[in-house]
Design a protein around this nucleic acid. Structure first.
Lengths: 337, 337
DNA sequence: TTGAAAGCGCTAACAC
DNA sequence: GTGTTAGCGCTTTCAA
C-alpha cells in the first residue's frame, strides 16, 4: 500500500494547498473548466495524482442535486431473469456515469418499502422495478414524488406506468411458425400455470400460428421437468399423436424430450420440440439440444437503461413496450444441421 | 400522486419553517436527540410527515464522513454463485442500515478499475469482491487506501487479505463418508478441470475419506452434463465397476445418472451417486433426485456482512476462513427414504 | 488568470 | 428547551 492506511482521503482543499493554489483554481483545473494557465493546471493535476485524490461524489451530488445513481428493486432473489437484465442495465448506466443501487425485496412489501425509502434517502435519480415474473405488481406504498420510474420484466399498478417487457406472444408465434415451416401440422403446446400472463400470451401466439387448433393438444401444469415428462407421456398416449411440441419453457421442454426419448420417439424426425427462455445450461444439455425462444433480456436491460436516462433528462415516457424475442434453432427441430 | 410532481424534495429547513421552529430544533426532533418538549417534537414530526420529508443521506454522509454504503464487485455476471451470496450479504447489511452498490466487472480489469474508482468516489465504507470461481484474483490496480475489503467465494492477491470461502474439502469428505456409510467401498470421483482450486480441494477431501484409493476411479473433465455422461460410460466399461460415484458438481452428477440409467444400472442400489452445489433445479429434476453437498452460500454472504461491519467499525480481520458445507441427502443415495 | 465566498442539506457544539 | 452557527467537500459566481 503506497498510501497511508487511514480511510480519510484527501480533499480538494488538500490538493489546492499542496499545489499552492486556491480552492477554486484547483476545482477549475480538475474540471477542465474556466481559463487557466497550462502551468497551473499541470501543477494541480500532479498534486492531485500525488495525493491520490478522488473527488467526493457525495459532495458533488449534494451541490448539483443529482446523485448519478439509480435504484433497482427486484423480487426475483436475483435469479435467472433479473441477472441478464441487470447486466444490460448496468452496462448502459455505467457508460453514462450512473451507478446502480441494488435491493432485493423478496415479495415482502414491508421490506420493499424500507428499501425504497432508503433509496429515496440516497436521492437516486431513478428507480427500476424488476421481478421474477412479468406480471403486474402492487404499487409501492410510498409516494415517489415524480421520481423517474421504470418497470422491466414486470408491470406497474398505476395506469400508464412505463413498462418494458419481452414480446411473449411474438416469441411463441416465432417458435410455432418455425415448427410449421418444418411441415408439421399437429403441433401441441405444453405450458405453465395459466395465472401467468406470459403463459396466456404465449398460448395466444401459438394459437395464432398453428394450422389447426386441437384443444387436446394444449396442456397446462407447473413449470417443471416432471410436468414436461408427464405431459410428454400423455401426448404419446393420444390416438392421434402430435408431430411437434412447443413448450412454455425449457424445463418443460426438457422433460418432454426425456419422456419421448425413453419411448424411442425420434426427435426431431417423429416429433420436433421447441422450448422457451433459451436457458443455455438447460437447452444445451438436452439430447438433442433444444431449439428455444430467447427473450433477449440483456437487450431489454440495455433498453431500460436508455429509457431511464431519457426520463432522468426530463422526458416523460408512458405505456408498455414489448421487445422482440429471437428463435435459437438447435437440433431438436433440425434433422441434420 | 398526493405529492407535487417535481423531483425536488423538501429539506429539513422546509420542515422547520413549516413547523415554526428553528433548523436545529427540527434536527433534534427527527433524530430523537437532545431534550425537547413533547409538544415541539410532535409539531416537527407532523410537519415532516405532511411534507413527505425524507432526510438527505448524501448530506448526512458528507457530514459524518461515512456513507453507510458498501460496494460489491463481481465477475460472475451475477450468476448462480453470486446470487445467494448477495442475498445473504444484503440482508445483513440492510439490517445495519447499509446499502449495497453493485458492479459487474466481467473479467475486464479496465472496467473493474473504473468501477472501483466510481465506488471510491461514492465514499463506500467497504468493498466486497466476489466471483464466478473461488480462485485467487489479481489485485485491483488501484490503491484502496485502507478501505475495509473482503473477498467472498474469491481470493485476494495481497497476503493476509481476508477471504471467506466454503470448505470444499470438508464438503467432499462429507459426501464420501456418506457413501462409505452406505457400505460402498469402490467409490469413484468425477470432477471438473484441475486448474480450479475447488476441484483440487474436493479431490483431497474425497481421497481422505475413501476406503481404498484407485487412480482409475478418478476422472477430470469439463463442468458439463456431457462430460458426466461420458465419464459414466467410461466407469461402466471398467473391469471392476465402482459401487458409488461422487461427482464434482451437480451437472456432472446428472450426466452420470443419465448414462447409468440408460444402461439399466440401478441407482442407488447398484451405484449410489452424490453431487456438489445442491443446485436445486438440477438436483431435484434428476431421476432419482440427487444427493448433493450444499455450500451454504447464503450463510457465507451473511457471515461476510457481519465481518464487513466489524471491519468498518475498525477491527482488522485477515486470513482465510472456510465455512462448513452441508450434505443434502436425496434418493440417489437413499434406497427407500 | 486567480482568489474569495456563498451555499448544497444536514449535524453538533455552543449560546441564549 | 430552543436558536444560532460552523462546517462536511465541492462548484460557481463575482471580485480582484
Amino acid at each position: 500500500m503506497t498510501q497511508d492506511d487511514t480511510n480519510t482521503r484527501p480533499t480538494l482543499r488538500d490538493v489546492a494547498r499542496h499545489a499552492g493554489v486556491s480552492l477554486g483554481t484547483a476545482s477549475k483545473a480538475l474540471n477542465k473548466a474556466g481559463t487557466l494557465r497550462q502551468e497551473t493546471r499541470e501543477k494541480v493535476l500532479s498534486a492531485a495524482r500525488e495525493l491520490g485524490f478522488r473527488p467526493n461524489d457525495l459532495a458533488q451530488a449534494l451541490h448539483r442535486g443529482q446523485s448519478f445513481t439509480v435504484g433497482l428493486i427486484s423480487n426475483d432473489s436475483f435469479g435467472r431473469f433479473t441477472m441478464p437484465i441487470m447486466e444490460g442495465l448496468e452496462t448502459v448506466l455505467h457508460e453514462a456515469g450512473i451507478a446502480l443501487f441494488m435491493c432485493n425485496a423478496t415479495d415482502d412489501p414491508e421490506r420493499e418499502k424500507r428499501h425504497i425509502d432508503q433509496l429515496l434517502g440516497k436521492r437516486v435519480d431513478g428507480l427500476v422495478f424488476t421481478g421474477r415474473r412479468a406480471d403486474r405488481r402492487p404499487a409501492p406504498g410510498l409516494s415517489l414524488g415524480g421520481l423517474p420510474t421504470l418497470y422491466v420484466f414486470s408491470q406497474g399498478d398505476e395506469p400508464g406506468a412505463p413498462c418494458l417487457l419481452p414480446d411473449d406472444e411474438g416469441g411463441a408465434r416465432l417458435a410455432t411458425e418455425h415448427l410449421v415451416s418444418l411441415g408439421r401440422n399437429r403441433i401441441a403446446h405444453v405450458s405453465g400455470p395459466e395465472d401467468f400472463e406470459a403463459v396466456r400470451l404465449r398460448r395466444r401466439g401459438y394459437e395464432a400460428a398453428v394450422p389447426t387448433l386441437d384443444p387436446d393438444l394444449v396442456l397446462h401444469g407447473p413449470w417443471s421437468e416432471a410436468w414436461g415428462r408427464e405431459a410428454g407421456a400423455r401426448l404419446l398416449a393420444l390416438p392421434r399423436k402430435p408431430d411437434a411440441i412447443f413448450a412454455g419453457n425449457d424445463q418443460i421442454a426438457r422433460g418432454i424430450v426425456e419422456a419421448l426419448r425413453e419411448r424411442q420417439v425420434g426427435i426431431p424426425d417423429d416429433i420436433a420440440i421447441a422450448g422457451f427462455d433459451n436457458w443455455t445450461v438447460m437447452a444445451e444439455a438436452t439430447r438433442p439440444p433444444l431449439t428455444s425462444v430467447d427473450m433477449n433480456l440483456k437487450t431489454l436491460g440495455e433498453e431500460a437503461g436508455h429509457r431511464l436516462i431519457r426520463m432522468i433528462k426530463g422526458e416523460k415516457l408512458t405505456g408498455t413496450t414489448r421487445l422482440p424475442c429471437t428463435l435459437v434453432p438447435r437440433a431438436s427441430t433440425q434433422p441434420t444441421a
